[in-house]
Amino acid sequence: MRKLTYFIATSVDGFIGAPDGDGDFFYTHLDAEFIEFLTTEYADTVARLGRDHLGIADAPLSRFDTVLMGRATYDIGFKQGDTNPYGHLRQYVVSRSLTAAPDPQVELISGDVVARVRELKAEDGLDIWLCGGADLAGQLIDEIDEFIVKTYPFFLGTGMPMSRAGFGLRTLELTGAKTFGGGQTVTSYAVKR
C-alpha cells in the first residue's frame, strides 16, 4: 500500500505561511547545500518552473508519483498563470468551489476526500505527497502515514498552522533528521498506529 506523506515547510513555531497563507518568505532562505539536498532527495516535490530553473526537468520520479493539494495551495501558482504546477506528477486538487479543472492534467476531488485518498493509497505506484494546506491536512490527519518537515530558522508568531486537525495525541516515531548550514532542518516521522 502506498503511503500518504505530508511533506511541508514550516517555521520554528509551526506555521506554513503568513496569516493570509503566503509562504514566499521560505524561498528567501535557501542556500546551495539545502537546494542540493532537496533536488537530490526530493526532486519530485519541486514545481515545474523550479525544475526547469534548476536543470532537473527530466529527473526521474523517485519517491512520489502523485500530489494532493487544497484549493488555496493550488491557487498560489494558478494566480500567476500556472495551471499545471506539478505536471510530472498526477495532480489532485481538493475543492468544493471549483466545478471544472483549470487544466487537463489536474483532477478535482470535490466529494469524500478521505475515501478518495484511501483509493489512491490502494493503487500501485510510488507514494502520495500531501502538499498542503492546513485544512486539508486536518481532514486527512488519520490517513497521513509519514511527516517530513522542513523547518526554517524563522519565528513568525502567528500564521497558517501546519494543520487544523484539532487537539489529539498522535504518536510519531522519528525516522530521520538532517541539519544544514543555513539553519534549516529536515525531520522525518512515521505515524505509529
Rank of each mutant, 00 (worst) to 15 (best):
F34D: 06
A72I: 04
W129N: 13
V46K: 03
V46N: 06
E173H: 09
G166V: 01
E36Q: 07
D20H: 04
V114R: 05
I141S: 03
T83F: 15
D22A: 09
L68F: 01
R164G: 09
F26P: 07
D24R: 09
L30A: 11
G77K: 14
S188I: 13
E143M: 01
R51I: 04
G77V: 12
E119H: 02
D124S: 15
H29M: 07
G23H: 13
D20K: 04
D135P: 10
T185E: 06
A59L: 09
F154S: 10
E119I: 00
H88Q: 13
P102L: 08
Y86Q: 08
T151R: 15
A72T: 06
V12Y: 04
Y6E: 06
L61Q: 08
G70H: 02
G50M: 12
K79D: 08
D13N: 09
L140W: 01
D112F: 13
S188K: 08
K3P: 03
R96S: 11
T187D: 00
G176V: 07
T171Q: 14
I16R: 15
P60V: 12
W129I: 07
A100I: 01
A134N: 06
Y74E: 13
T187L: 01
G176N: 15
V113A: 02
M162Q: 10
K121Y: 07
